[in-house]
Amino acid sequence: MHKQVTNSHNSPQKRGRGLNNNQRFWWWMAFATSLVLLDQWTKQYFNTHLYYAERWNVLPFFDFTLLYNPGAAFSFLADGQGWQKWFFISIALGASALIITLLRKTPQQILFSLSMSLIMGGAIGNVLDRFQHGHVIDFLLFYWNNSYFPAFNVADICITCGAILMVLDEFLRLRKKKHEPKE
């Protein structure tokens, strides 16, 4: 009788598992951290290489620029008397705490976790600006003739893409639930 020896590292059970939920959670946290680092690096670059409101033309509809936004998206509440800084910081930190909890519970849900990581990375990137500078640094400017889209940054791109993916994830989840057989 020959006893078959199996390598526990190559067994079908081990190969099929991949990362456990704790490892997945930390992978999503590392991804969000890398987004924060990219956001902060790009903001630092443009903050040190451009004067305020200076523009570097890249394409006929796109410039790099340096603008400061004390408000939220589209300069919402930008004319506040300073209270909005702490309001936006509180919202971002609260949202990040909720996202960490959600990522801890569902790290295996790829699309949902990706959306949450993008939103958290963007939120933390903008919070760091508010703590360091009292405003958010924006440097991406799209326009056509005399019409301008508000300037934005990498953090804003992450938040926007994360929100879109979150809606897509919910749509796909509802669609799947609708097509499941009823018991």
Results as ranks from 00 to 15, higher is better:
85 K>L: 09
40 Q>V: 01
122 G>E: 05
58 V>M: 07
144 W>E: 09
92 A>H: 00
35 L>M: 10
112 F>Q: 09
68 Y>N: 10
103 L>G: 08
40 Q>N: 06
64 F>K: 00
101 T>W: 15
66 L>T: 02
16 G>L: 12
33 T>E: 06
81 Q>Y: 08
55 R>C: 05
102 L>Y: 12
121 G>Y: 03
24 R>P: 03
118 L>G: 08
168 L>H: 03
74 F>T: 07
102 L>I: 14
20 N>R: 08
2 H>K: 15
52 Y>S: 10
40 Q>K: 01
111 L>Y: 07
130 R>L: 10
30 A>K: 06
125 G>W: 02
133 H>D: 09
19 L>W: 13
6 T>R: 13
54 E>P: 06
81 Q>C: 00
111 L>D: 05
159 I>E: 01
147 S>C: 11
42 T>D: 00
69 N>P: 02
8 S>V: 14
171 F>H: 07
83 W>R: 01
15 R>A: 11
161 C>A: 12
24 R>F: 06
33 T>V: 15
137 I>T: 15
151 A>C: 04
32 A>E: 03
77 L>T: 00
163 A>R: 03
138 D>F: 07
122 G>C: 03
50 L>T: 05
38 L>F: 09
34 S>G: 12
30 A>D: 03
157 I>E: 05
86 W>F: 12
35 L>G: 05
16 G>Y: 08
51 Y>D: 11
140 L>D: 04
98 L>P: 03
179 H>K: 14
50 L>P: 06
41 W>C: 00
155 A>N: 02
150 P>K: 07
68 Y>S: 12
1 M>W: 09
157 I>Y: 00
139 F>E: 05
116 M>C: 11
135 H>M: 13
57 N>Q: 15
96 S>A: 15
21 N>I: 06
39 D>H: 03
176 K>C: 09
114 L>I: 09
23 Q>W: 10
13 Q>V: 14
177 K>R: 14
140 L>R: 01
114 L>D: 02
135 H>I: 11
150 P>N: 06
164 I>S: 11
57 N>S: 14
33 T>P: 00
29 M>A: 12
91 I>C: 01
112 F>E: 06
42 T>M: 07
106 T>I: 09
97 A>C: 13
136 V>A: 09
156 D>S: 07
49 H>C: 01
165 L>W: 02
176 K>Y: 13
148 Y>D: 09
10 N>E: 12
84 Q>V: 10
32 A>W: 03
147 S>E: 13
91 I>S: 04
83 W>F: 02
110 I>G: 04
155 A>S: 08
93 L>R: 03
142 F>N: 04
121 G>H: 05
13 Q>D: 12
59 L>R: 01
3 K>I: 15
146 N>D: 15
172 L>D: 10
102 L>R: 11
122 G>L: 04
169 D>L: 00
32 A>Q: 03
171 F>C: 12
144 W>D: 08
94 G>Y: 02
89 I>P: 04
149 F>Y: 15
76 F>L: 14
92 A>Y: 04
116 M>V: 00
120 M>Y: 02
53 A>S: 13
75 S>F: 10
63 D>Q: 07
18 G>E: 08
15 R>Q: 14
151 A>L: 04
101 T>P: 00
75 S>L: 04
64 F>Y: 10
182 K>E: 15
7 N>V: 07
107 P>Y: 09
180 E>A: 15
120 M>V: 07
26 W>I: 04
96 S>Y: 06
68 Y>C: 02
123 A>F: 04
140 L>Q: 01
117 S>C: 04
94 G>W: 03
